[in-house]
Amino acid sequence: MNDRAHEGSLGGRGALTAILLIAFAVSLVGVGWEDGLLNSGGLRAVGQIVAAAIQPQLTLDVLSIGARSTWTTLAYAWAGMTVALVIGLPLGIIGSGTLVRSPWARRWNISFARFALAVFRAIHELVWAWLFVAALGLSPMAGVLALGLPYGGILGRIYAELLQDVPDAPLRALRGAGASEWRVFWFGRLPMALPDMLSYTFYRLECGIRSAAILSFVGLGGLGHNIHISLQDIDYSRMWTFVYFLIALVLVVDLWSSLVRRRVAIEQG
């Protein structure tokens, strides 16, 4: 199916590029630049923000608020990822269609799970947040669910693909040794897909931290909430303190993920 793309590529790609460029140009005109995207005070504010970056507020008071809200944001992200795993792992496994042998059952598994995953994924976490806040009020549960549902949809879809794309020869050998599809899954498919699945899950945890910060702008507490308040108070030094906490949090998660991945890569299971 890639053949066609290769054959017709030059003409097709040229046209596509042209269309995208035109669309971009139109969008530039469409944006209301004159409505003060950069207002008169804008440049001065930018200068102040940049200057504040090198002198974040480091009083004990601000640091302890920073530490506590870092914890809150991490907790949201973590709880959200847990919900996402509960949704994404089973639906991803079903959606890979690898547990059943008959083509008919496989097609149904894939269609059902992919449809459910698409529904979760189609709605952005901010929209979910809006829905859940409307339903549950400003509660942590609203934030966790708002994060967990779309992330579950994304995780499940990627898991399904990673589980499908595993090399076939080892699986055939396991079937030859008498293994049922479930055993083939546990002993062949999952171990082969696991490093990539872990890696992607960690990447999503990072995204989850950023999203949790954004959700806290909405009023759910955490780092985003404090950044928001500092901006309202025009206290850029304090804002930077919280931004640095956020950066540090993402870096720590990144470090942790590379440690775990190295373990999975080298150690036998």
Partner: peptide, 26 residues
């Protein structure tokens, strides 16, 4: 070669038992 590359040699060899093992044991 058709071994499962990221399982240990021992586990690959024991995969010869998958026809006899229950799912839990697997």
């Amino acid at each position: 070669y058709d071994l499962v590359p990221n399982l240990s040699s021992l586990q690959n060899v024991l995969a010869g038992r998958l026809g006899d093992w229950g799912l839990l044991k697997s």
